[in-house]
């Protein structure tokens, strides 16, 4: 696995208003970056630019490898069982053994017992964990996580930190936007 993201002199604008200007960011394989700053400063928008979901107003972004995105919305069909909802996305990833990947990811996020429960019955925190399970199951090279720790209990935050460390150990890259402290050793800091 080898994932990397590079942003060169990126400017982010929403609705004609410039939020973030002149951002340079390089995350090498095995590296991580933390985008921090107060609410509304443009953390999520910058992350969307890195994911290619939003065009930068200026500058450019290069990505190496496949991308897993965790945004604010869960993107899991509420009427489906958790395992089925995740399996839909695992199948979209076009990698081998989607069902095995989903089962492993559910166990990694301590959601194994909820595999048969429809998504609409899950709590906010459980949904966030499910969204993280999708990131894990995707096996993508680059993880872009927008506020991954929001709504998580202390145990799940620790689990998240372990998963990120494990992903980096295999050559993956991670960019996290957060206003909560996360233990990410040697992560580049981007303060907005």
């Amino acid at each position: 696995m080898s994932g990397a993201v590079r942003a060169v002199d990126v400017t982010v604008a929403r609705g004609g208003r410039v939020l973030v200007e002149g951002i340079d960011l390089a995350v090498a394989p095995g590296g991580a970056a933390v985008v921090a700053g107060p609410n509304g400063v443009g953390k999520s928008s910058l992350l969307r630019v890195l994911a290619g979901l939003l065009r930068p107003a200026a500058g450019h972004v290069e990505r190496e490898g496949t991308v897993a995105w965790m945004g604010e919305a869960a993107a899991l069909d509420p009427e489906r069982a958790l395992a089925d909802a995740l399996a839909f996305w695992a199948a979209q990833d076009a990698r081998a053994l989607p069902d095995v990947r989903v089962a492993a990811a559910l166990d990694a996020m301590l959601l194994g017992d909820l595999a048969d429960v429809p998504v609409r019955f899950l709590s906010t925190g459980q949904r966030r964990r499910a969204a993280l399970a999708r990131v894990v199951a995707s096996g993508a090279d680059v993880w872009l996580l927008d506020e991954p720790a929001s709504g998580l209990d202390a145990g799940a935050v620790e689990r998240l930190e372990q998963l990120i460390a494990g992903h980096r150990a295999t050559g993956g890259a991670v960019v996290v936007a957060t206003h909560q402290p996360l233990a990410l050793p040697d992560a580049a800091q981007v303060a907005l």
Binding site: A51, V67, E72, A73, A74, R134
Partner: peptide
């Protein structure tokens, strides 16, 4: 669009 399904498809290259 609201549920983020389109975003998830977009990062997968759809």
């Amino acid at each position: 669009l609201e549920a983020g399904v389109v975003d998830q498809l977009a990062v997968r290259g759809v």
